[in-house]
Design a protein around this nucleic acid. Sequence first.
DNA 1: TAAAATAATTAGAGAACCCAAAATTGATTC
DNA 2: GAATCAATTTTGGGTTCTCTAATTATTTTA
Lengths: 160, 160
Amino acid sequence: MVTEREEDYLKVVHELIEQKGYVRVKDVSKQLDVSPSSVTEMFQRMDDAGYINYEKYGGVTLTDSGTEIAKSTQKKHGVIKDFLEILGVQEKMADEDACKIEHVLTSDTLDTLTKFADFINKNKEAATWLDHFRHYHETGYYIDEYLINTNQCPIHKKKK
Amino acid sequence: MVTEREEDYLKVVHELIEQKGYVRVKDVSKQLDVSPSSVTEMFQRMDDAGYINYEKYGGVTLTDSGTEIAKSTQKKHGVIKDFLEILGVQEKMADEDACKIEHVLTSDTLDTLTKFADFINKNKEAATWLDHFRHYHETGYYIDEYLINTNQCPIHKKKK
DNA sequence: TAAAATAATTAGAGAACCCAAAATTGATTC
DNA sequence: GAATCAATTTTGGGTTCTCTAATTATTTTA
């Protein structure tokens, strides 16, 4: 079974291959903020595990299973990050959280987050609703026009 | 710095103390599905770290810092679980995911999730909107009345 | 092409987990 | 009080991941 850390490494390797066409120990080291020797060691482990093809002092390529894991992890990352940003979490935080969560969320939950983003993006009504939530989130106040349609007093009301 | 695993152990210890008034190695072992020897070892580590007071063959109590961590972790768990359940994730999955996520979410994001739950619970409008999302989530179809107010054709439309 | 610079690997070690099996302690029962 | 039983701890070992320092390979440059 693939570990979380292996998923991290596979994701970075995949990204670097997409960006530059090849992978350097140095780059992975910088990207993940670990020492070069840690990268070498992980490369050896992942070669043994069948996720990458690794040759000393040479290049690294992803195997089919490695590619699958990398893509799946990237996809999860995107889903989570998009979702959090929709909710109003700042890009940097959303990215940071997505990096952690992507390894552990059940596919059920992932599916829910995906559907949520779809729903928001396909409905004007939803977008409006979201604006109201964002306003509440940022200021702690409800928006007047919105309150008119509820059973609440149309006075700015601080959330306690 | 407290590790994720220490947070897990502290949470369980705190829960057991609340429930039964005391803590047995056996119970923690069962709760976390680890061997008794792992629990003993962790107890020793957490005693060294100042999170618990541990005496061989005796009881375990939480220090102030241990209590703080346990409570904070429990609180985060609750926020995340509630949030996911609001979105329609099944209780079991929501709980499972919350157990993982509680250790890693930024406080920014946690705050957003809390506010989201508040917002939903305090607005009829929001609750209605949520029903529509839940329906879409479960069936893949939009609800007619809802679509009337959007730029979409009021025919059941499968999401692709 | 030989020396210098850079990159990568190996060697050795440590932290945070985990386990099974053996030894110990504390509680119960006869 | 001694024997038994259950709970706990110790011992010894394993995995995954990390590091620094030393070594080796590759690339650059003079």
